[in-house]
Design a protein around this nucleic acid. Structure first.
Lengths: 242, 242
DNA sequence: CGCCGACTTGTACAATTGTACAATAACATA
DNA sequence: TATGTTATTGTACAATTGTACAAGTCGGCG
């Protein structure tokens, strides 16, 4: 049944509007020059709604309505719903790559004083910076949400997305905290992920504390690094620096 | 439209089978003495499935099918779907009360050496113990899941459930770590919650490490307490014990 | 027996879901 | 102008959802 019908109208994975000849095939829009890229609108709408409510709780119709396009256009640009999620992630791949390369660079410098804090900073700072930016704040929440609860349809996407980061973190930490058993380091990493999750999902805080203590404050990030670094050192440090 | 129709068959909030005369109105079951309590089956099925997939991703039909009962029986014993979730939580209220009373007791002893670790232990241990038991392991995951992502329908239930615990933790910590600003303590609490979340959701670990390092190991819980305690001290301790 | 209340069930219904399809509109180039 | 590619749209359809309702079964008590 899955091979009898070929999706005739969908299946444009790349950008269908930016391929033709390469020159300026602009000819902006039929009636309105201010609305050139509806594909981008759909992508932004999907990113926001997936972050806000979670993948399963968002319908394709919701995404289309928020982007101001008819439902069928979502299926035209991105095929099925899981592919739309994968495209959202691919769109922010650069942020993940930055985290990995920064961690690797620190690990390559070998052991030394304050390495743990350096790795934690390199690991979390790109996420927090994205979170503080206007365009990426919803994506950082989406990252946290799907990392904690990848639905049955998003699991594969998430795994492919994160596995290199996990490996880079563990390898660098094994250098910074030599002698720590692997599985203990893995648990410590999970606790750090949990803390980062809560850092990004700051709505609870705003509700509980009545609006103060919002993210974006640099001191807040320093506190976060302090918390995670101390936890890692206490749990995995074989020779605590006294 | 919501007042025109009264739910005629549902709306039994208490236990409809255990109320009548008080004596043994047993008369077990029509055809089978081995199946006395279908209400309990539904409750257990709901707890398991809510924990496994999340509230929104579970249909009433799924719950009924797992319990081996027809769909309408779910609506008969518990009214609507949110009420079913609330009943699941109410069913485990004792565990929450234990956490709160243990934390309060420690806080009442005033400041002292190792108080932070004591509070963290009292705060997390009932959850972990429940998690290690056969009957409650799914509920601890449900607690974590809904604490992190209460859907729009479960938010109110969750808030009412957790607010006393949060207050007890913060008050006791304010005694153990005097001089720490309230909002910083609040953030530290959130990071601790995140770590506990990951402790309970140990599936990821089993996948990554290939089956080793499962929860239930007492050393694992000690490591968890070490991590969180060190983080709290490093972030909120005004006079670190050197 | 007859009746009542607790329990049980099959079924219906409106709403929402993901996905597909045919038809149209807009444009570039020949 | 003709033509083909890209973009856009309304609509349909099967599946699933939460919830309700009427009709049942069962056991005990008058």
């Amino acid at each position: 049944m899955e091979t009898t019908k070929k999706p005739s109208s969908a299946r444009r994975s790349a950008s269908p509007s930016g391929r033709g000849k390469g020159a300026r095939r602009s000819a902006i829009a039929p009636g309105d020059p201010q609305r050139p890229d509806r594909r981008q609108d759909i992508l932004a709408s999907a990113e926001f709604l997936f972050a806000e409510r979670g993948y399963a709780a968002v319908s394709v119709r919701d995404i289309a309505a928020r982007a101001g396009v008819p439902v069928a256009l979502v299926g035209y640009y991105f095929g099925r719903k899981p592919e739309l999620l994968a495209t959202v992630f691919a769109h922010r791949q650069a942020n993940l790559d930055e985290r990995i390369s920064r961690i690797r660079e620190i690990g390559a410098r070998g052991p030394g004083e304050g390495r743990v804090a350096e790795i934690v900073t390199a690991w979390a700072e790109p996420v927090v910076r994205l979170h503080d930016s206007a365009s990426g704040d919803s994506f950082s929440l989406l990252v946290a949400r799907t990392a904690w609860d990848p639905g049955p349809e998003a699991t594969e996407t998430i795994e492919r997305f994160y596995d290199p980061l996990v490996r880079a973190f563990l390898e660098a930490m094994a250098v910074a905290l030599p002698g720590c058993p692997d599985d203990r380091l893995l648990w410590a990493y999970e606790y750090a992920v949990g803390a980062l999750l809560m850092y990004v999902a700051d709505k609870r805080i705003e509700r509980l504390s009545g609006g103060r203590a919002t993210a974006g404050d640099p001191a807040l990030f320093e506190d976060f690094v302090r918390f995670v670094t101390a936890g890692l050192n206490a749990m995995c440090g074989c020779a605590p620096p006294r």
